[in-house]
């Protein structure tokens, strides 16, 4: 059952149609906990992108030798391996990047989105399709995190990327973890609304 989408369609699919945060509602922990600033969202997005692409390709490559009964442990093992390897390589060769990103990379092992993509996509598709799907999912996740981060940073601290744009702090409440739920919910509603409007316009 190979996918009939082109590479570009796979990427767009990850960003819009099956956006991990707003459509699939996966990996809510980081979406709620860490999306407090745009920069955090970007960093975590990059980290997820790397791990997702590497794990997807690995699983897709070995899909025929993975016993179906033990696929979940194998996925977890694959993700853990990639997270560890990327963590070590960054620490050794890119210490500046590691100082900023190290903390995010270690968080990834337990992300639902990566396991889910391995289960739903990579274990059935070719390496090429899995690679592009991984890119799409990573970018979609980054987009979701940055969109949330934008709203929460602007409303919570009055800054964007650390630069003071408002000059005051409107609602500090937005930076706290529970406000993440409100933000995710409101933005999900917003994206659903856009979709409805778009479909209506298309039909008319």
């Amino acid at each position: 059952m190979a996918t009939d989408k082109t590479n570009l369609q796979l990427v767009v699919n990850g960003i819009l149609n099956e956006n991990p945060i707003f459509r699939l509602v996966l990996s809510m922990c980081p979406a709620v906990g860490i999306s407090t600033t745009v920069m955090n969202g970007f960093m975590l997005g990059i980290a997820v992108l790397f791990v997702q692409v590497c794990s997807s390709c690995t699983i897709s490559l070995f899909k025929n030798v993975i016993h179906p009964r033990i696929r979940i442990p194998t996925y977890t093992l694959t993700i853990a391996t990639w997270v560890t390897v990327i963590d070590m390589v960054l620490a050794a060769y890119l210490p500046e990047a590691y100082a900023k990103m190290g903390i995010f990379i270690k968080l990834i092992v337990a992300f639902a989105i990566i396991t889910m993509r391995l289960e739903m996509f990579a274990c059935k598709e070719s390496v090429n399709a899995s690679f592009w799907d991984g890119i799409g999912m990573g970018l979609g996740f980054m987009f979701g995190m940055m969109a949330l981060g934008f709203v929460r940073e602007l409303l919570g601290m009055g800054t964007i990327l650390g630069y003071d744009v408002l000059g005051f702090k409107p609602l500090l409440f937005f930076v706290l973890p529970f406000a993440g739920f409100f933000c995710v919910g409101l933005m999900m509603a917003f994206f659903n609304y856009i979709e409805i409007v778009y479909k209506r316009a298309k039909r008319a």
Partner: peptide, 9 residues
């Protein structure tokens, strides 16, 4: 440190 980014971080 491994505190939560944005909060304890």
């Amino acid at each position: 440190n491994e505190e939560d980014p944005g909060l304890g971080g």
